[in-house]
Simulated assay, not measured.
Amino acid sequence: MPEDEFHRYEIDDGVLIVSPPPGAAHQVAVLELANIVQKPARTAGLGVVPAVEVVTHRRDDWLKVPDLVVVTLDAFESEPQEYEAADVVLAVEISGNRQSRNRDFGEKLEAYAEAGIPHYWIAELVPVPRLTVFEPADGTYREVVASEEPVKLTRPFAVEIDPARLRRTRGR
């Protein structure tokens, strides 16, 4: 992909998808979520990386840039330019509008399941903050929880996430 700070590039079934860079609310949500999961992930022997390319050796026509990934510690410490999907334990997408929501609950859900990523979360910012958690089931994902309230998770590590914390509010 070309060096371009103004666009995000992904490849899906050989189709190049070009997106504008995420807005401020999106970036704040990524930063907040990274802060929430950093310590529990590290305790579980995992590393947290925002907005990095993920590829799969099984397909040359597949490249994704999840908003946040949690990877094995070996992969994290090797500081690669891109991560192999097999090293990704959790992929997270932040949805801030209808178009991103449709992609995150549609093609990305299918693509991450096909690549064998064991955990997938979608954090929606509008109309209200909501976290949806998926785990593998027969080659696809099944929804484990979808909540606007705080959620306690045990996989892939123990963490409590309040979706409301992912949305910037005045006075916080």
Rank of each mutant, 00 (worst) to 15 (best):
L16K: 07
V54L: 06
S95Q: 06
H26A: 06
S19E: 13
V88D: 10
P50C: 11
G14H: 08
A113S: 09
V49D: 02
V70E: 06
V133Y: 03
S95K: 03
V15E: 15
R98I: 12
W62G: 05
E107D: 11
I122F: 01
E110M: 00
P40K: 02
E107I: 15
V92T: 04
P20C: 09
A123Y: 05
E82D: 10
G96K: 01
V52K: 05
P118K: 07
D74V: 10
Q81W: 07
D13L: 07
V88F: 13
L46W: 01
Y112N: 13
Y141W: 01
K108R: 15
W62E: 08
E53H: 12
N35E: 12
K39P: 00
P66F: 07
E110V: 12
W62S: 05
E79W: 09
V37E: 03
E110Y: 03
R58V: 07
S19C: 04
V52I: 15
T43M: 14
S95T: 13
D61A: 15
V70K: 01
L46Y: 14
D87E: 13
A75N: 04
T140F: 06
D61L: 08
D87G: 05
A41H: 07
D61R: 13
V48E: 06
G139W: 10
L63A: 12
S78R: 14
K39N: 11
H26T: 09
E93N: 12
V65F: 03
A34I: 01
G139I: 01
F105G: 00
V92C: 11
H57T: 12
T72F: 00
L125T: 00
N35A: 14
T72S: 15
V126P: 00
I117H: 09
R58P: 05
V54G: 05
Q81V: 13
L16W: 10
R130V: 12
K64Y: 03
P66A: 08
A44E: 06
A34N: 04
A25R: 14
R59T: 02
G106E: 10
V71M: 00
G116P: 11
Y141V: 02
I117Q: 09
P20V: 11
V37F: 08
H119Y: 14
V70N: 00
S95V: 09
D104R: 12
D13K: 13
A113Q: 08
I117M: 12
V88H: 08
R59P: 00
A111F: 01
R142S: 12
K39V: 12
G14E: 09
P80T: 04
I17S: 02
K39S: 12
P80K: 06
I122C: 06
P21S: 13
E114M: 11
V65N: 09
L109R: 11
K39E: 14
Q38C: 01
D67Y: 08
P20E: 14
V15C: 08
T140V: 13
